[in-house]
Design a protein around this nucleic acid. Structure first.
Length: 877
RNA sequence: GGGAGCGUAGCUCAGCCGGGAGAGCGUCCGCCUCACACGCGGGAGGUCACGGGUUCGAGCCCCGUCGCGCCCACCA
């Protein structure tokens, strides 16, 4: 079979994905006796388009899933999408607006119909994009957070938590987004430092001519002030407590209260209290039984409580109030001030704290098992430092505001009696009010926070609350893979939900990855327009290249930068494997091969087989520890540096000499094919497409690589002596190349070589060198192994215990040679000095492990031998 | 204010258990060698931020300093 000299991913990627799906290779069987290994996908938003963050997240998951599947686990990767409540609602609202349709006008039912239509049309796009990446998800089990099963789970959880008293409705201060016109949870608010002002205002003290100075960053909120506060221990204001002050502009008398919350050191030590629009003030208000005056409409304009400022936007009002304060002589001074402003993470609007009636989840009890999960070792993050991040959030957790004033989402299963206002939480609309018997009840208009349903994802997708076979088999899941940016939103909530509803942690390990940044280290964002589209990268370089790039050289939890050159390097590696296989295939020429007897294997064969064996063991250990970057580096280096650069070159000698030695050629080909097949298995989880393609051509079989067995360490394939010898061969060959290169010996000049050793133990190694040097003729330009004695005009190439002599004297520039040898001598002197220092150190000899000391002694002898050689050569020049 | 990171070759980053500093890209030199120029061979390039400490031995462990971003937080 003829293969093109350059690998073209476009020709094969889609083909293999189809084949895998046709063969049901991604499907997991709940009846399988194999040990399960489960991952549920962090569901991408239906509004979303595949971005680099997804690409990284999915790549890591797919690597784990494919690897475990090959290891013989019953591997299940559950895919699905998230309805993304606010994002989707905003998106569809805007789309409708462009068509001249107003959401309020068409009403809730019609709007939801539009959203479902939109979901059907665009919601599938992201899963198609996941397929392009090669994700081996079990698409038969694809779920959606608002599908029937997930909705049922949501409803049951709401009812259960309500019954237990964990869900309650209350009038409390919440974060309000004036753009989206909905309440938000704490997690959805991002704090960013903004340059603002600190206005110092005089509040006249009633009954005196005096006034008290107050500093504020939000003067407009004074319309809702119902007190001012000082610290109870503050001597400066001791006499003030209990008095009243005049609220400027509003001209209302408000009390002065003493409260520990006030920081005496900050500002003037006096705080205006606006219970309706500040979380702290709200609590102070509760303690002192203060009136709560809401001064804002839902769009953050001032409401009727704002007097003459009513109708103004909050910032307009701020400006007007500051002007009026100044005009009235109340403004003392204005300072520049940097302060943290809360913004809605979706739309970046500055949120406004407001008192509203909302639904909350009480978190104190629920958080406990989630905290203990870490302490008991039932849950851990990789890397471990994220345990702390997770715990700190749980220790400081607030009650979770779960109601949202939008339409798209799970509607809250609560009904209000039109007559008496009784609340009934129920899966179905009650026929009549249990309190007053009234038959008119109205369902709560609100929907649930989108994270309420994603919190249940690990078990709702497996069938919970039904006791399904999937749930019994695959739950709890094995690993969750996600970015550190989503720990609070999602991971925390899944864990406490898992414990509360299933009694178990939903997974035992959370593999955390960082962000994919642009080449300048900036976050990829729509507004910056610096996002790289993974699909374009796949189109240009192939999915395998993108995957390899995303996993190479990246440690868990660390951010990485994306740039094309890295993908090019990955693409080049795919091409390297492609060409290695091409070499084997064109020489194999359809021949059937039997495994040669060990006796027919040359040391080089044993070396590469032994090395492959070692790599399989080492990288599996890395994979076990989620060190995917290190693991892939090992197989990459093995394929390129050992297999391609050394073994193939060595094997060529026998292959091109097949006429004289058919058996040798067959043995070499067998080892080539066997070793490449093994390397393809090891590389498959990282680069599924190209490896599957090559494997299928190479084995000519029906079996899919993705379902092949993961290589395990085999004692029978371990040949440490040959591995050691090969190290010497490389050293020798490099030495020869080095001499030729440094001496500017023309590449066309071929020579013979004489090899000798005084060490009998290295006799086998000499044979290996002889058998390897000739095959490496193209690089070393060695045309024959010379017999007989060395002569004076030969250039020696020294390595450990063995010397090679090249008859190059006439070609060599003596000055250059002297320079080279002097350099070598200096290097050896340095090494010898280091070694001598260590070995003359009593403490090293007594305290270091014996093996280390022995190793150092051997090195010293080795260096001394080489030094002798070098000195002799220098004298001979 | 608190927390956890990062600082290693020109650039981007690895470095597992403490035991002679690595990769990719770039650069320089030589090669279109019959798998691959998306390649082959050879080279240059590092005070592992800085200062202490522990240790026979520190890029790695401990303490401190400087620099850089990050997360959390109700000082108005």
């Amino acid at each position: 079979m003829e293969l093109a000299s350059n690998y073209d991913p476009k020709k094969i990627e889609d083909k293999w994905y189809r084949k895998w799906e046709e063969e049901k290779a991604f499907h997991a069987d709940a009846d399988s006796p194999k040990e399960p290994f489960t991952i549920v996908i962090p569901p991408p938003n239906i509004t979303g388009k595949l971005h680099m963050g997804h690409a990284l997240d999915e790549t890591l998951q797919d690597i784990l899933i494919r690897w475990r599947r090959m290891q013989g686990y019953n591997a299940l990767w559950v895919p699905g999408t998230d309805h993304a409540a606010i994002s989707t609602e905003v998106r569809v609202t805007n789309t409708l607006k462009e068509q001249g349709i107003d959401k309020r006008e068409i009403g809730r039912e019609a709007f939801l119909e539009k959203v479902w239509e939109w979901k059907e049309e665009y919601g599938g796009a992201i899963t198609e994009q996941l397929r392009k990446l090669g994700t081996s998800c079990d698409w038969d089990r694809e779920r959606f957070t608002m599908d029937e099963g997930c909705s049922k789970a949501v409803e049951k959880v709401f009812l259960d938590l309500y019954k237990k008293g964990y869900i309650y409705r209350g009038k409390r201060i919440i974060n309000w987004c004036p753009t989206c016109k909905t309440s938000l949870s704490d997690a959805e608010v991002e704090h960013e430092d903004q340059a603002g002002h600190f206005w110092h205002i005089r509040y006249p003290i009633v009954g005196t001519d005096d006034a008290v100075e107050i500093a504020t960053t939000r003067p407009e909120t004074m319309l809702g002030d119902t007190a001012i506060a000082v610290h109870p221990d503050d001597e400066r204001y001791k006499d003030l407590v209990g008095k009243t002050v005049i609220l400027p502009l509003v001209n209302k008398e408000i009390p002065v209260v003493a409260d520990e919350y006030v920081d005496m050191e900050f500002g003037t030590g006096v705080v205006k209290i606006t219970p309706a629009h500040d979380p702290n003030d709200f609590e102070v208000g509760q303690r002192h039984d203060l009136e709560v005056i809401n001064i804002l409409n839902d769009d953050a304009t001032i409401n009727e409580n704002g007097g003459k400022y009513a109708g103004m936007d909050r910032y307009e009002a701020r400006k007007a109030i500051v002007e009026d304060l100044e005009a009235g002589g109340y403004l003392v001074k204005v300072q520049e001030h940097l302060h943290a402003v809360g913004t809605h993470d979706r739309c970046k609007t500055t949120v406004e704290p407001m008192v509203k009636e909302q639904w909350f989840v009480r978190m104190d009890e629920l958080a406990k098992p989630a905290i203990e999960a870490i302490e008991k070792g039932e849950l851990t993050f990789v890397p471990e430092r994220f345990n702390k991040v997770y715990l700190r959030w749980l220790y400081n957790i607030h009650d979770w505001c779960i109601s949202r004033q939008i339409w798209w989402g799970h509607r809250i299963p609560a009904y209000y009696c039109d007559e008496c206002g009784e609340i009934v939480v129920s899966s179905e609309k009650p026929g009549k009010c249990p309190k007053c018997g009234c038959e008119h009840l109205t369902q709560d208009e609100d929907t649930l926070d989108t994270w309420f349903s994603s919190a249940l994802w690990p078990f709702s997708t497996l069938g919970w609350p039904e006791d399904t076979k999937d749930l019994r088999t695959f739950y709890p899941t094995s690993v969750l893979v996600t970015g550190y940016d989503i720990i609070f939103f999602w991971v925390v909530r899944m864990v406490f939900s898992g414990y509360e509803h299933t009694g178990k942690s939903p997974f035992h390990t959370v593999l955390i990855h960082g962000l994919v940044r642009d080449s300048l280290g900036r976050k990829m964002s729509k507004s910056l327009g610096n996002g790289i589209d993974p699909l374009e990268v796949i189109d240009k370089y192939g999915a395998d290249a993108l995957r390899l790039t995303l996993v190479t050289g990246n440690a868990p939890g660390n951010d990485m930068r994306y740039y094309d050159e890295r993908v090019e390097a990955s693409r080049n590696f795919a091409n390297k494997m492609w060409n290695a296989s091409r070499f084997i295939l064109m020489n194999l020429d359809g021949a059937e091969l039997e495994r040669p007897d060990d006796a027919d294997l040359l040391p080089a064969d044993k070396w590469i087989m032994s090395a492959a064996n070692t790599v399989a063991r080492d990288m599996t250990e890395n994979m076990d520890k989620y060190e995917l970057g290190i693991a892939v580096q090992k197989v990459h280096d093995f394929v390129w540096d050992e297999f391609c650069d050394w073994y193939i070159e060595i094997a060529k000698y026998r292959i091109y000499n097949r006429e004289n030695d058919p058996k040798g050629a067959a043995a070499a080909l067998w080892v080539l094919r066997d070793t490449l097949a093994k390397a393809l298995k090891l590389m498959h989880p990282f680069m599924p497409f190209v490896t599957e393609e090559i494997y299928s051509v190479l084995t000519g079989g029906e079996d899919l690589l993705m379902l092949a067995d993961w290589p395990v360490y085999d004692e029978a394939l371990s040949w440490p002596e040959e591995e050691e010898w090969m190290g010497k061969v490389k050293e020798m060959v490099r030495g020869i190349r080095n001499v030729r290169s440094e001496m500017d010996v023309p590449p066309s000049k071929k020579t013979g070589i004489l090899i000798e050793t005084s060490d009998e133990d290295l006799a086998g190694c000499i044979d290996l060198i002889k058998e390897s040097i000739l095959p490496l003729a193209r690089a070393t330009k060695i045309s024959r192994i010379a017999d007989g004695d060395k002569t004076e005009n030969m250039v020696p190439v020294v390595s450990s215990g063995i010397t090679a002599y090249l008859p190059l004297a006439e070609l060599v520039d003596l000055d250059k040679e002297r320079e080279r040898l002097t350099k070598e001598k200096e290097r050896l002197e340095k090494e010898l000095a280091r070694s001598a220092a260590m070995l003359s150190n009593e403490k090293f000899l007594s305290k270091a492990p014996e093996a280390k000391v022995r190793e150092e002694k051997e090195k010293q002898i080795h260096y001394q031998e080489m030094m002798e050689q070098v000195k002799k050569q220098l004298e001979n020049l």
